[in-house]
């Protein structure tokens, strides 16, 4: 059977402050990061994200080197980054357009 590389997470872009799980990563798995090693405090399902740096509330969350939202609380390295601590920064163009419209 094919061998898996050691780290269950991948960084999609050098600017990212998140890592993405390649496979389900069990609680307790140790992950090496720039700031040191962290241990997962929960199981992270495949394709989900964890922080790879300290993210402050209000910081832009980056994936693919592009903004995917804004942190709503401080997030520690290794913590799950998802709907509970990230909000969309997107205002639909429909809304902006109607806001600009002169009646």
């Amino acid at each position: 059977m094919t061998e898996l590389k050691a780290c269950p997470f991948m960084r999609l872009h050098p600017d990212d402050n998140t890592l993405v799980a390649r496979i389900n990563a069990d609680e307790g798995t140790k992950i090496d990061m720039d700031g040191g090693q962290v241990q997962l405090s929960q199981t992270i399902p495949m394709a989900h994200k964890i922080a790879c740096r300290h993210i402050k509330s209000g910081d832009v969350v980056l994936k693919y080197g592009m903004p995917i939202g804004v942190a709503t609380v401080d997030i520690a390295p290794g913590e799950h980054v998802h709907v509970h601590n990230v909000r969309s920064a997107y205002t639909p163009s429909v809304v902006l357009h109607e806001a600009d419209a002169v009646s």
């Binding site: 495949m46 939202g69 980054v81 998802h82 997107y90 639909p92 163009s93």
Partner: peptide
């Protein structure tokens, strides 16, 4: 496209997306 899909009533971000790891529509 936004207007069109709004008219169709087709939701662009669903529970299944979040379960699959996507946190926002832009992601």
């Amino acid at each position: 496209a936004e207007r069109y899909y709004q008219t169709l009533g087709y939701g662009s971000f669903a529970a299944g997306n979040a379960a699959g790891g996507l946190s926002t529509i832009e992601e």
